[in-house]
Write a protein that binds this DNA or RNA. Structure first.
Lengths: 157, 157
DNA sequence: CAAAATCTAATTGTATGCAATTTAATTTTG
DNA sequence: CAAAATTAAATTGCATACAATTAGATTTTG
């Protein structure tokens, strides 16, 4: 006989359907799959697209700052940026001011890709619209949760 | 001179800070890091914990159904389950009823681990509480968004 | 019933993520 | 100023994810 967990059941908190984490996790993966389809024609992965968003705002950025913006560390970014360099989207060079730093710069091709990316947000918004949610409010809530959870695994300051 | 994108700017939609996807993505990663700390004493990764939640509900489950519950495919699950089998948490065997299927079953150790996991949700809830959000409502919203985005990449039905 | 279609896992190859360590450069300190 | 501490990337090793393909079993069909 399979027992069914109820509210009063000590097992209730361990039901998959109860987990905020699973709702968050599975929604992120689902959105990632939608982005993969939309970004494929641009030759970008999801994370690469996020990096390009930063570079389209400021065309030269140290790896460190890129990591701070994206909340990712060099273990993720170094190979990511190398692939983007191979793809001809960015160039990487040591900062002459401080040789520890590596500056990432958009190439012409990388900068030009912005044109093709301009309607990506609209396509994604279209896919999200079916939810009927206030997406702006959802975004604000997620940011509040993220902030409560703490940014990176890196030590404060 | 760096131009600043404004609402009327065609670039405004490409600002990182505007992206729901980034809020979702970065919050998921942040929560994943919190889970990693909480789950480390149990010897579970985040995804393994999700799989255990399903198995603690029903101690024998075909890989297919596990994938449907977690919205993951065999490319992710097969190696995951093999690691969990090596760790002594589950056993895998072909279903005699239908040799295409593989049944995943909790071992005694796997079932026993539920005791140690019982306060995981509380620890996580504690970490989330600082956000001051209605987490139940957030969960519902995320599920609505996920449903709008479509479940798996697998074809419908 | 036999061939075709379908279904289930496993496999292969690519791309994240992250902890921990390493290396080189810069800053801080005694 | 030289040693110690700090900083920034890169590297290593492990664990997801997922598309595409493969292999074997079962079901459907002609």
């Amino acid at each position: 006989m399979t027992t069914r967990a109820t509210d009063s059941d000590p097992d209730a908190n361990l039901l998959l359907s109860r987990q905020l984490c699973f709702a968050l996790h599975s929604t992120t993966l689902a959105l990632g799959r939608v982005y993969a389809r939309v970004l494929a024609p641009l030759g970008l992965t999801y994370t690469q697209y996020l990096a390009m968003l930063v570079l389209w705002e400021t065309d030269t950025v140290p790896v460190k700052r890129l990591g701070a913006r994206l909340m990712l560390d060099s273990g993720t970014l170094t190979p990511l940026l190398k692939r983007m360099e191979t793809a001809g989207l960015v160039a990487r060079r040591r900062d002459p001011e401080d040789e520890r730093r590596v500056l990432v710069t958009l190439t012409q091709a990388g900068a030009a890709l912005k044109e093709q990316a301009r309607d990506v947000p609209l396509q994604i918004a279209g896919a999200c619209r079916a939810s009927g949610l206030d997406l702006r409010a959802l975004k604000t809530d997620l940011e509040a949760l993220r902030s409560a959870l703490g940014g990176t695994s890196a030590p404060p300051q």
